[in-house]
Structure formats: structure tokens, C-alpha cells
């Protein structure tokens, strides 16, 4: 197994996942994106095994001169809207293509957060991250396979923004230092006033609070852990095929967030979710007539 830490190396990861020399930054079909907007988001078209894909990645080396809180892979206002725009552009260009021919979107994830500044709040960072998620959900529902690959950090709201709306989510295994969490266990320890040792012991039984891709795997939030960097390309390619097959079969909820809910139950990680929804359906059935 090859352990090569990929944190901060979004651009390298693009080269490792797509066909050599196939990545054209800021180009999606006949649309060219400006290079001075959202430098923390790397976007463009490429090919995997000869098939056209659209790539959206984080660049942890980039600083956004216009927004001082945006660096080290943070998704700021410009980054999120740029990412959303790439998705809408792809949907529009492929609108007439049938499912099976629509270009896959490949998200390479290495982000510590959404822009946390005052200007961001005044102008509404919540809209920026929300708009990218809606765009990805629309792409997924209109037949584009959306695959996320976590190579470094996928932290809290930034993972929701860039990753959790994908059909399938892959992550390099914990040996790569991959971080998927809302808060590190040290912070959970402070909030719950429990020893870190005790929390780590508990997390073996219950994956809902502990930090790490293996726990998200158990909860169905990660479909597959990738154990070698050399495997990134074939595993992404395989998941594109699998997701596309599910879409062609017409089962929209087999993949994406709702599919991950089912997967979480199959893996024993989220056992209440379905019971709650079914209880609501049962109780509503007995009163539905009053509301018709």
C-alpha cells in the first residue's frame, strides 16, 4: 500500500485521477471561466478512461486576495458561486443528452470550511454554499453521475457544500490523514465533559460523533474507502459506472443523500432514521383524509 499524504494537494490529485494531460482548467465545453474569480476552487474539464468529465476541486495553496478569510482550501463566496456555475453550465450543455451520456461531475475534496468572515455574513455565505448544493442536487437528479473523492479535509459545512450532495462518496483511508468530521474529538470532549480516552472507547461501539472517514463509512456517509493513491482513478471510474447503472435503472434514491441513509442502516450505523420516517407515514395515513 502506498501512503502519500494528499492534504493540500488538490491539483496533484486531479492529475492522479484523470487521464494524463486531459485537464483543461476553467474550460467547460464552449464556456471559459475567468481565472481571477474564486482561486480556491479549481474547475475544468478532463477525461477518465477517455470519457469526458467535469472536475471541481479545492486548491489549498491559493489565496483569495479579495477575501482575506479565504485560503488553505476554504470555500468562500466566489468559490462557491463559481462551483455552482460550473455545475449549471454542465447541466445546460448536456440538457439534450440522455442519461448515460451526461458528463459525470468529479469532486475532489480537501476543504476545512466555508468562508467565516464578517463580509461573508453581511452578504450571506449561507446562500453561496446553499446554491452549490442545490446545483449538485439538480445535476444528480437530472442524470449526471456525481462522485466525490475526499483526499484531505472534509470538515463540517464545507463537506456538506462540497461532497455530501454526491451520488457516491469515496475517501482515502485514515492512514492518509484524511479528516472527515464536524469537530475534532478534543472539542467533543470539552463539550460533553468526557475524557478523550472514554470517547474513543465509545466511538468503537457508536460511530455518530467520532472524527474520521471510517466512522462516516459505518454511517453510510462514505461509500468506499480507497487504500492506495494509485487506486483513486480506477475506483472513481468504477463508481461512475455503478452510479450510472443506478440512474439508468431509474432509482433516484439509490444514490445520493437518501441512498446514503439506507446504506447507513445496512451498515448498522443509523438505525433510527427509517423508523422515524415510517412512523410519520403510518400516523399520517390514519388522518390523511382530514387534509384532503
Amino acid at each position: 500500500m502506498t501512503v502519500e499524504v494528499m492534504i493540500g494537494r488538490g491539483r496533484d490529485a486531479i492529475d492522479m485521477v484523470v487521464d494524463p494531460g486531459s485537464f483543461h482548467e476553467n474550460q467547460v465545453g464552449d464556456v471559459t471561466f475567468p481565472d481571477d474569480i474564486g482561486p480556491g476552487a479549481v474547475v475544468g474539464e478532463a477525461a477518465i478512461d477517455g470519457r469526458d468529465v467535469v472536475v471541481i476541486a479545492n486548491d489549498a495553496q491559493a489565496f483569495n486576495d479579495k477575501f482575506p478569510v479565504v485560503y488553505f482550501g476554504v470555500i468562500g463566496l466566489e468559490e462557491a458561486y463559481k462551483m455552482a456555475k460550473v455545475v449549471y453550465t454542465t447541466i445546460k450543455q448536456d440538457a439534450d443528452k440522455p442519461v448515460g451520456e451526461k458528463r459525470p461531475l468529479v469532486l475532489i475534496v480537501d476543504t476545512p470550511g466555508n468562508g467565516p468572515g464578517k463580509i461573508e455574513e453581511i452578504f450571506g455565505m449561507n446562500k453561496a454554499t446553499g446554491s452549490y448544493q442545490l446545483a449538485l442536487a439538480e445535476a444528480r437528479k437530472s442524470g449526471h453521475p456525481v462522485i466525490a473523492l475526499v483526499i484531505g479535509r472534509a470538515i463540517s459545512g464545507a463537506f456538506l457544500c462540497h461532497g455530501l450532495q454526491a451520488d457516491h462518496i469515496l475517501s482515502l483511508s485514515p492512514e492518509f490523514g484524511t479528516m472527515i468530521h464536524v469537530m475534532p474529538i478534543t472539542s467533543i470532549s470539552r463539550i460533553t465533559k468526557m475524557d478523550i480516552e472514554r470517547l474513543e472507547e465509545l466511538s468503537k461501539e457508536n460511530p455518530v460523533f467520532a472524527a474520521g472517514p471510517q466512522f462516516f463509512y459505518q454511517l453510510g456517509g462514505v461509500d468506499e474507502l480507497v487504500e492506495n493513491v494509485e487506486d483513486m482513478r480506477p475506483v472513481v471510474a468504477r463508481h461512475i459506472t455503478e452510479v450510472e447503472a443506478a440512474k439508468l435503472a431509474g432509482d433516484g434514491d439509490a444514490t445520493g443523500p437518501m441512498g446514503h441513509g439506507t446504506l447507513g442502516e445496512e451498515r448498522g450505523g443509523r438505525m433510527m432514521r427509517r423508523k422515524v420516517i415510517e412512523r410519520m407515514e403510518d400516523e399520517f395515513a390514519s388522518v390523511a383524509q382530514r387534509y384532503l
Binding site: 469537530m183 456517509g221 443523500p257 447507513g264
Partner: peptide, 17 residues
């Protein structure tokens, strides 16, 4: 909810969906 942060995060994605 930080006490069950991972499940809470995944639920957010479902609501957006």
C-alpha cells in the same frame, strides 16, 4: 448537534436533497 455530529451532518444533506 455535536453529540451525534456525523449523523446530524448527513441529515442536513438529506434535507437539502
Amino acid at each position: 448537534r455535536l453529540h451525534e455530529a456525523n449523523a446530524g451532518l448527513l441529515a442536513h444533506a438529506e434535507v437539502m436533497d
